[in-house]
Design a protein around this nucleic acid. Sequence first.
DNA 1: AGTTTCGGCGCC
DNA 2: AAAGGGCGCCGAAACT
Length: 563
Amino acid sequence: MTERWAVAPAEDGGVELAALGPDGLPVGEVRREADLAEAVRARPDVSRWVWRSTSDVYPRLLATGVRVERCYDIEAAESLLLGHEGRLGEPRSAAAALARLRGGPVPADPPQRSAEPGSQSSLFEPRPVHVPLTDLLAVYADQQRRHETTAHPERMRLLTAAESAGMLVAAEMNRSGLPWSADVHRDVLHELLGDRYTGGGEPRRLAELTEEVSAAFGRRVRPDLPADVVKAFAQAGIKVRSTRRWEIESIGHPAVKPLLEYKKLYRIWVAHGWSWLQDWVRDGRFRPEYLPGGTVTGRWVTNGGGALQIPKVIRRAVVADPGWRLVVADADQMEPRVLAAISRDPGLMEVAGRESDLYQSVSDRAFSGDRDQAKIAVLGAVYGQTSGDGLKNLALLRRRFPKAVAYVDDAARAGEEGRLVRTWLGRTSPPAAGAGDGAGEEAGIPQDDPAETAVDQGWVPGYASSDSRARGRFARNFVVQGSAADWALLMLAGLRRACSPLAAELVFFQHDEVIVHCPAEEADTVVAAIRDAAELAGRLTFGRTPVRFPFTTAVVQCYADAK
DNA sequence: AGTTTCGGCGCC
DNA sequence: AAAGGGCGCCGAAACT
C-alpha cells in the first residue's frame, strides 16, 4: 500500500485534503475537514503525506501523538530544486514557487527567526503566506516535472525524499529532546569553574586564573580581551599577531599556561555554563531546534543551544533515563569512505571495502604505515590544504589513489572557475557571488564591475585570485562533505524506520553520529538497526559499491562513557 | 541604545 | 610565503 495524500491546514483552522494518484495528480475533489491531526490519524494507510512544510505541519501532529511514515516537504524540495537550477538565493517558499509558476510578483521569504530558548518549536511563528491546497498541488506537479530535468532524476527524487525524511526526524527530535541531567551538569561546572559567583561575575576558578596571568605579566591583564593580551605580550618583548592557541602555546612565558587554561574554561562558562543550562534544559531534556539542510552542504545546524558543539567534558550530563540506555553510534572515517564511493577510485574503494581502520590501510599502502601522515593527507585532500605536510603528502596520495584525488581536484577547479558543483544526489553549491546571469542575485544589488573586482582582489591573468582559490577549497570540500550528508540522511531515515515499532527514540544527530535513547532490552536491536541502516544507506545513495560504512557503537548510560 | 562584526573556540 | 572545509556561540569592539 503506497497511498499518497496531500494535506494543508486551512486558514479557518480546518484542513484540506486530497488523494493523489500514481502520477502525483489529485484523484477526485479536495476535501475539507475540521481537524488536521484527526484527518491524518484517520488515514493510517497513507504512506506519504505531501505538505508545504514539515516544520509547520508535523509538530501539530506530534503534539497529539500522530506520527507519519513518510512525507514530501514542498518547500525543502523547492530549495533543492532551485539549487540544482543554479538559482539558490531566490525565494523558496511555496508562495514564491507558485508566483513563479503563475507569473505574479514573487514574495520574499519571511526572515529567519533567531534562537529563542525554550520556545515550543514553530507553533507561534508568524504565519507564512497561506497557499490553498489546489495551488500547492500545482507547485507539487511542477516540482515533479523539474525533478525529471535534472542530471540524475532518480537521484534528485531520492534527495528530496531524504531531505523530507530528515525533516520528520528533526521534528521528532525537537520534540523528544536529549536526556540531560542538570544536576550532573552543575557538578561538572562546579568541578571545572568553582563557585559560580565571586562578586565580579567570573566564577572562582576563572578569577584565580586571571590573577595568575596578571601576576605573570606584572600588571593587570584581562585574559578574555585579545587586544589586552597582545599588548601585554608586546610589553614583555614578545610579538604575537593574535592570541590563538596555536600561536601562543609554544611561547616560553609564564603567562601562557594559565592563559590557555583560562581560554578553555572561559569557553565552557560562556557557551555551556549555568545560563545555558537555565535557558535550554527543562524537565530533564535539552531541546535544541534542529534545522536539516541548514548549511549549503546539507549538514544540519541547530537554531540555538549549540547542540552540535557540545564540549566533550559537558557530555557527562547526557544521561539515560532509569532502565534506559543511550546507543551512541559514530560512523568510522565517513568522509574518505564517501570519497571512495563517489570517485570510484579502485584503490580507495578496496580499502574502504573493509571495516577496519581506513587511515591505517591508506598508510600501509602509501605512507609506510604512518597513520597520522595518511590521515593528514586524506583530510588535506578533502579540505584543500595548500601548505605544510598536507601538500607534500598529497603527492603520495595522488600516486596511489589517482581517481580519488582527481575527483576533488576537478571539483576545486570547477569552484575556482565559478562553476556549480553537486553532491552525489544532486545538492548543489551556491553560485559564486557576481557569477551567472543575475538570476541568483539579490534584487536591487548591482553586479560588480568585473574589471574593478579583479583589481580589488589582486587578480592577475593566469592566476587564481585568493577569492577563487577559496571557492576552490569550498567546492573541493563540498562534494565530499555534502555527499556524506546525503548518505547520512538516508541512514537516518532507515534508522527512524527501524525504531518506529520500538520504544526507542532518536535523540541526537551530529553529521556522522547518532544517539538513540531506548529501554535497555532494546539496545541490541538498535545496534543492529544502525548497522543495517548504514549499509542500506550506502547502497541507496551510491548504488552498487564495495564501500562499507561501519559504525562504532557503544551502549551506555552516559554519553561521556561512549568514547 | 541598538545592531553588526570580530576574535576565539567548541563540534564534525 | 602561502589561511584546510562546514557550522554556532558568546562577549567585546566597532558601527550607526
